[in-house]
């Protein structure tokens, strides 16, 4: 098994130290850092995501795999040359105004990071104006809005409207999720996508940027 194949395996099994060691060895051997990310770290997380979706892997296994992936990233990322990016794209995530329930949002953020996205997590209870500010500041490719309560779902629509009014709606793709949210609702408020879970969010995010 090549070192690259090995690092993929160690990401999947969530061997934090093993991934760090292999990443260092690959770097020392002169392997291109962006190649280590793409063919090693992210490739491993891709398999994790696929297995998670098929119920062959479970949340704690995904968490430890992501931790292992990050241990590798910490070594490789500083070595990227200017212009090279470690991430597929940037995603801003948060729960919408009035909603403090962040378990689902955190899981989705973790899955996206695992898939190689740069995730900026704004936290909970983020108003439409704060989203607009964050879009201007961070220039993300995608924003992910989360709501658990039926009473805060209208804040998703308000956020999208505010992005329109601020003239930045076309710069970003908006995806929405949360237990009471549906595809129908996403269509109604003109979101670009609806994701029921972290692996769907990852798939949709990939479609957005490709």
């Amino acid at each position: 098994m090549s070192k690259m194949e090995e690092i993929v395996e160690e990401v999947i099994t969530g061997n934090v130290d093993g991934v760090a060691e292999l990443a260092q060895e690959l770097v020392d051997e002169g392997t291109n850092p962006s190649e280590i990310i793409k063919n090693g770290l992210v490739a491993g997380m891709d398999i994790v995501g696929a297995r998670f979706k098929k119920n062959e892997m479970f949340v704690p296994e995904v968490l430890i795999a992501a931790k292992a992936m990050h241990a590798g990233m910490d070594i490789v990322k500083p070595l990227l040359t200017e212009g090279e990016s470690s991430s597929a794209a940037t995603v801003i995530m948060a729960t919408v105004e009035g909603d403090l329930h962040d378990i689902g949002k955190n899981l989705v953020a973790m899955m996206l990071e695992g898939a190689g996205f740069e995730v900026i997590d704004l936290g909970v209870d983020i108003s439409a104006d704060e989203f607009v500010e964050a879009v201007k500041e961070h220039q993300p490719d995608i924003i992910g809005l989360s709501a658990l309560l039926t009473t805060t779902m209208p804040a998703m629509e308000e956020t999208i409207k505010s992005l329109e009014e601020a003239g930045v709606r076309d710069q970003v793709k908006v995806m929405v999720g949360g237990a009471p949210v549906s595809q129908e609702f996403a269509d109604e408020i003109d979101a670009d996508g609806y994701a029921a879970d972290g692996s769907t969010a990852t798939e949709i995010a990939r479609e957005f940027v490709n």
């Binding site: 479970f58 949340v59 704690p60 968490l63 378990i103 955190n106 899981l107």
Partner: peptide, 8 residues
Amino acid sequence: INPIGTDQ
């Protein structure tokens, strides 16, 4: 109740 899967 939070999931035991995300915080043991």
